[in-house]
């Protein structure tokens, strides 16, 4: 199918894009279009106008930010996967980007577009939550605003953003002593995660001094698994980890579908949590 008819404007500046969004007429932002266009083709989304931000240089690229990274919203997965600064400072982002979908999608799909789209099975929201990243948003009336990743995702395809806001940058803090690993089990058909887990762990010798674990694909929205905090001050004991992983998904309402029943999703979520924590623990000690 083809989308319903719409008008198209290629923004010449961020200011122009913000001005169009401020009209409040349902205008949508397009960059790579790999979330938006499929939905428009299925006519799940209709928009009177698209504003194309993909050629705005100021929204693209990766820079040093304090000890971490500033990532422009329209940076593609392909760019992230091979960016030397990303690989050095925060390898988990490059690793996850390199494994998303396929070459063609990575060439077009942008990190900011995916985060703003907030698919409950996409990988990067879990990474951003585990790393405690911040998102910078701009609007004509409200100016600039920073939203913490951990408070940004409100539901399936629902975020803290208003329709007038533009997602401009991602701020990833320095990893410090922490190391992060992402583990996912993907649907063979769609490639999306049935369960995906990012664990970020800091160690003092053999003891865990800091741990954050975020889970995607399983519930209605990506979430931080608080139960894993009990791993702090332990030496990553297997029995404690197994119990914490079980508890992390125990109370969740998990919908089953044609790809996997609820009980299987719960099981692989536990396995993904255990593997991500174990590997992050190993990596932090390396």
């Amino acid at each position: 199918m083809i989308p319903t008819s719409f008008d198209y404007v290629r923004a010449g500046s961020v200011r122009e894009a913000l001005g169009l969004l401020a009209l409040g007429d349902g205008t949508k932002v397009i960059a790579g279009g790999h979330s938006l266009l499929p939905m428009m083709r299925f006519r799940l989304v209709q928009a009177p106008k698209l504003v194309d931000i993909s050629r705005l240089e100021e929204l693209r690229g990766v820079q040093e930010y304090k000890k971490g990274l500033r990532i422009g919203a329209t940076t593609t997965y392909a760019e992230l996967a091979r960016h030397p600064l990303v690989r050095e400072r925060c390898p988990v982002i490059a690793e996850v980007a390199a494994d998303i979908a396929d070459i063609q999608v990575r060439n077009r799909g942008t990190i900011g577009g995916s985060l703003a789209h907030a698919d409950p099975a996409s990988d990067m929201p879990a990474v951003m939550m585990a790393l405690d990243a911040e998102f910078q948003l701009r609007s004509k009336k409200g100016g600039r605003r920073t939203a913490r990743a951990r408070e940004f995702f409100k539901g399936a395809f629902v975020t803290d953003m208003t329709e007038e806001e533009l997602f401009t940058d991602i701020l990833v803090p320095g990893m410090g002593r922490n190391a992060a690993v992402y583990v996912s089990f993907d649907s063979a058909a769609s490639g999306y995660a049935l369960a995906g887990v990012c664990a970020s762990i800091g160690r003092k010798r053999a003891t865990i001094s800091d741990i954050s674990v975020a889970v995607t694909g399983v519930a209605e929205v990506v979430f931080l698994a608080g139960a894993l905090e009990r791993m702090k001050d332990t030496k990553c004991d297997a029995a404690v980890l197994a119990a914490a992983a079980k508890e992390a998904v125990a109370g969740l309402e998990i919908a089953g579908d044609v790809h996997a029943p609820s009980s299987y999703r719960r099981h692989i979520a536990e396995v993904a949590i255990i593997r991500a924590v174990e590997r992050a623990y190993q990596r932090a000690g390396a």
Binding site: G33, L37, P38
Partner: peptide
Amino acid sequence: AVKSCTTL
């Protein structure tokens, strides 16, 4: 390489 069915 780009999927031309997902590009305007």
